[in-house]
Amino acid sequence: MTRTLAKALFILFVVIPSFLGLSYALGVSFGLIGLGNGAPSFTLSHWEVMFSEGRLMKSIGYTILLAASAIAGAALIALGLLSPLLKRMPGNTLPWFYFVPLGIPPIVAAFFTFSALANTGLLSRIAVKLGMIPDASSFPILINDELGIGVWLTHVMLAFPFFLILFLSSAKTQEVHRLRETASSLGASSAYILRKVIRPIVIRKNAPLLIIWFIFVLGTYEIPLLLGGQKIRPVALVIIDKMRGYSLATIPEGYAMSAFYAVFIMALSFLLVKLISRRYDA
C-alpha cells in the first residue's frame, strides 16, 4: 500500500511534470504548438538549424568535460583528505568548517571566486604587494577564460566537502580505518592503501551520488554565466540565449535544444547507472 502510494506520488509530482515539460518543448520545436499568433504546423526546420549550427554539440561536449573533470577533481581532493582524516579521527565527525561550502549558493560561490581570482582580485593584489608580479594585469587569467578554469574551481570548491562527508561516512560504515590499519601493519604504503583499499570501497559505494552531482553540474548556469568565457559555453547558457534572445524566431530552436539535451542526459544517466550496476554485480 505504502509502496503504491509512493509510486503514485512520484509519478504525480516528478514524472508527469517532467514529461509535460518535455512534451511542450517537443511540441514547440516541431511547430505543433504555435508561438504568438502563427498557426501551428509541423516543421523540422528548428531541429535542422540546431544541428547545422554545430554550436549545441560543441557545447554538450564542453559541458560534459567540465562536469566530469570537476567531479573527478573534487573526488580526488576528497580522497586525498580522507586518508589523513581517518588516521587522525577514525570515530569522530568532520570539523565544522568543512561544512561551510555546502551552505554557499552557487551564485555566491561564483562571486567569491570572481573577487578572489579576477585580474584585479584579492590574490592578484596580494601577488603584486609581495612583488611576485609587476602589476595586476600580469596575473594569470582565471576568470572569463576560454578553458573555464574559474568555473571548474568553483564547482570543485562546492563539491569536494560534500564528497568528503560522503566518503567519510561510507568509510566509517565499512570500517575502512581497520582495513587501513591492517594493510599498514602488513607494510603497505599510504598511496597503496589509498589506491587499493580506500578508493575501491568509497568510490563504488558512492558512485550513484557522484553521478547525481555530475548531472547537477551538467545543468550549471549561474557559475559559467559570471565566470565563464564566451567562445564555448555550457548548454544551459546556449539554450537561454536562444530562448531569451532578441528574436522570437529562435525560441523554438531553444526548445529543440532543451528537449534534445533532456533526452540526451536521461540516456546518459541511464547508461551510467547501468554501467555502475554491472560493475557492482561483477
Binding site: 509519478i11 509535460l20 518535455l22
Partner: peptide, 18 residues
C-alpha cells in the same frame, strides 16, 4: 508505463494548446 505517461502528456499538451 513511462511510454504511456509520456504519450498521455503529449496529448494533454496538444489538447491544452489547441
Amino acid at each position: 508505463q513511462l511510454t504511456t505517461t509520456f504519450l498521455t502528456c503529449c496529448i494533454l499538451i496538444l489538447w491544452g494548446c489547441g
